[in-house]
Simulated assay, not measured.
Amino acid sequence: MRPTLAATHRACSAFPATTSAAADDDHNHRLPARNSVLWATKGTKVTDPSPKRILNSALYAAFAPATPAAQFAVTRANAGTGLLPNHQYDYLAQTPQAHPLYDATVTDPALTDGQPLTGAIHASFTNGAATGTEGSGPGADVTFTVASGPTQSPQSIIARAVITREAYDSLSAPRTADEVANLMRSAFLDVVEGRVATALAAATLTEIELTAAAADAVLEGDLLTASAALDVLRGGPDMTVSVAGPSLFTDMVEAKDSGGRRLGRYTAGQGVAFAGRLWSPSWALTAASGATGYVFAPGSIVTRVSVPVVREVQIAVETVDVWLQGYSVTSAVRPTEARRIVFGA
């Protein structure tokens, strides 16, 4: 049993209150000055009759731990969260989606508000040139007509995040509000990509009908025939944008000839070269969109977007709002230079 403070006090009270200078000098002369507690922990036998040494030894015996080594048994397990890691990796943000439909159709100028847009579009042009006859004028004059283009009515895209005051004020890296804003901007483009697919599905376009459940060489043959037919049309050679939905894209990648060799050349992140075209996959062209793919000329399908505006709004003391607001619109301004790809019944 370890001695109590009272017992130690009684033991120490038996010592003389004062000592002679000669005794102190004799003690200091014979023993080096050191902390007697440390001296005692090294197991040195105490033979010094000095009252100072006896007093210090008594105090150590009263208050020293029963097993001094235990006080240094510090491990990662018992230190818990008090230990900080030597290294930290940076915050890993969400990977954004690809937006092939948006990339292929977006154009300037950017929207600044939700006001409808109107414009003119070529309607017809005849008698632009003819073989002349000496002494005679042209057989017919030029005719040129312009029609009103489709009215483009932008639709708003909005979002709001409510962040607690404590999360907003935290010194995290990146700031919570900044990361939420970045995710909102990415989601903004996801909405635009979906709207392009919706606008394509709603447009009146000529369709390329593939053989029902076409695969392998049959699929390749159908697409080659359709592409060759486009090349002889006005604007046909310009129809270089080729986008496929997940199902059709997979069929192209997996298509094989009779010997089991792949008919297309797939490159990760770039698409698949198949039937004379480079096809990009779009996650937005699902079965619900009513088509398996599209072929169109740049500028025939037009998407306009505004720069998304993100604001931090402090209305309540306990929370902070992060708002996003913007506009987008997609129109088939030249539908004769676009084709919808579908499978036959």
Score class of each variant (00 low, 15 high):
2 R>Y: 07
5 L>E: 02
13 S>N: 08
13 S>P: 00
15 F>M: 08
16 P>T: 12
26 D>H: 05
26 D>M: 04
40 A>N: 12
45 K>V: 13
47 T>K: 15
54 I>D: 03
59 L>H: 02
60 Y>L: 11
61 A>G: 10
62 A>H: 10
62 A>D: 06
64 A>S: 12
70 A>C: 06
74 V>H: 09
74 V>G: 10
82 G>I: 00
84 L>E: 12
87 H>T: 13
90 D>V: 10
97 Q>K: 15
100 P>G: 05
110 A>Y: 09
114 G>R: 07
120 A>Y: 05
123 A>R: 03
125 F>A: 12
132 G>Q: 11
132 G>F: 03
142 V>G: 08
142 V>Q: 11
143 T>K: 04
147 A>D: 08
147 A>P: 04
158 I>D: 12
162 V>P: 15
168 Y>W: 06
172 S>W: 00
173 A>P: 02
180 V>K: 01
188 F>G: 08
192 V>P: 09
193 E>Y: 09
195 R>K: 11
205 L>M: 06
208 I>N: 00
208 I>M: 04
214 A>S: 04
215 A>W: 13
219 L>K: 01
225 T>L: 06
237 P>K: 11
246 P>W: 10
248 L>W: 01
256 K>A: 14
264 G>Q: 07
269 G>Q: 09
270 Q>I: 15
271 G>P: 06
273 A>R: 14
276 G>S: 05
278 L>K: 15
291 A>E: 01
294 Y>A: 05
304 R>L: 08
313 V>I: 13
318 E>K: 10
320 V>I: 14
323 W>I: 08
326 G>V: 00
329 V>N: 06
333 V>A: 05
339 R>Q: 05
341 I>Y: 06
